[in-house]
């Protein structure tokens, strides 16, 4: 059975369902008995969801002008290459 330290070290793998089944079983058993680790893993899950909703998670906006400027640069770079 994993220790509390093991739980903290592999909690992303547990939440992302990336543990082999036998490790997952040990993990699950530990969580069934340890209220502290249940809270730790719940808080990690909440952290992940919060990161996804934070202002930093928003994909930067790109204006039409910026797009056009980049396309011009791309055209220029291929002309330079061809020329």
């Amino acid at each position: 059975m994993p220790s509390c330290k093991d739980i903290t070290e592999h909690s992303s793998d547990y939440l992302d369902r990336n543990l082999p089944w036998w490790k997952r079983m040990g993990y699950w058993l530990h969580l069934a008995m340890c209220v502290h680790c249940r809270r730790y893993v719940d808080q990690l899950k909440l952290t992940i969801d919060t990161i996804g909703k934070s202002p930093e998670a928003t994909t930067p906006n790109v204006s039409q002008e910026e797009i056009q400027a980049i396309v011009e640069k791309m055209k220029q770079s291929t002309k330079n290459k061809d020329g």
Partner: peptide, 20 residues
């Protein structure tokens, strides 16, 4: 023995919106 001595405390909120 690698078990908690100072376990995590409760947070005041339990949803991302409430935290943010």
């Amino acid at each position: 023995n690698a078990h908690w001595a100072s376990p995590p405390a409760m947070w005041h909120a339990d949803t991302p919106d409430a935290l943010l």
